[in-house]
Design a protein around this nucleic acid. Sequence first.
DNA 1: GTTTCTGCAAAGCCTTTGCATATCG
DNA 2: CGATATGCAAAGGCTTTGCAGAAAC
Lengths: 142, 142
Amino acid sequence: MDNQKVLDKFKRILKSENLKVTPQRLSILKEAVMPKGHRDIEQIMHDLIDSGIKVSRATLYRTLDILHTNGFIRKMNIGDGADRYETKIDSPHHDHMICIETGKIIEFTSDKIESIQEKIAKDNGYKIVKHIHQLFVKPINK
Amino acid sequence: MDNQKVLDKFKRILKSENLKVTPQRLSILKEAVMPKGHRDIEQIMHDLIDSGIKVSRATLYRTLDILHTNGFIRKMNIGDGADRYETKIDSPHHDHMICIETGKIIEFTSDKIESIQEKIAKDNGYKIVKHIHQLFVKPINK
DNA sequence: GTTTCTGCAAAGCCTTTGCATATCG
DNA sequence: CGATATGCAAAGGCTTTGCAGAAAC
């Protein structure tokens, strides 16, 4: 999706919720929506500073929450402390494989797993709202 | 597995690691290893108190860590705050389905999912050390 | 007797929140 | 101007940790 479209969509959403269009929110949107992997608040904060943008941690948390709620970014946690955020723009659904030796995060998908999951939920009288599927791995031959 | 066996195994492990056999540790073992679902510290604390046992939160955390490290219990987190603990005694591997309306946690397993996972990891040059698979669901027809 | 524990309270870590001031519309 | 944001610092929620007295071996 084109940057302008994303920006326009964000502004539209802000207005529809009586939220104001501020420079901080626009800067955070632009940064958070970049395909830069699975960053925590600290890393995003740094990347913003590197771009010459200064916002408070509080505003960053608050704005990431708006972005998450409105489907611009995903929020995840691999159990190592802080929440991580990842763009959702032009990024289809996937799950995560985390190397416990290097920390590298690899994305994977499996239609088969997805459909088996659906069936399991359905067989129990439920439908899936969201799911977390993380494989903690280490290199073979080590 | 019989209670006495579990107790003996725990004592053996404590000794082998130069840890002392204390009444607190034994009480916590007995409580934590019961098939009482997926409890957080607060709930376990309460259950201990109901049994007339008083230990500090610090000791509870410390002992649950020993039990987790040595395979007596599992540790999990469904993203709602506190870590949860579940017995591993006589409890085969399973994943979790969490109803977002009632909070109910249902266990499920799928050999197919397990083997697809293994293959995905292997195809990427990794082997799985552990995994987290949680389905957040809600009842059909609501 | 020495080593390890326990309980307490304090500290840590990440995230949220109250409030005064600043900014948007 | 009125309504909402921002930044700061304080507070929150859960977990970990330092330390002095207590218990295990």
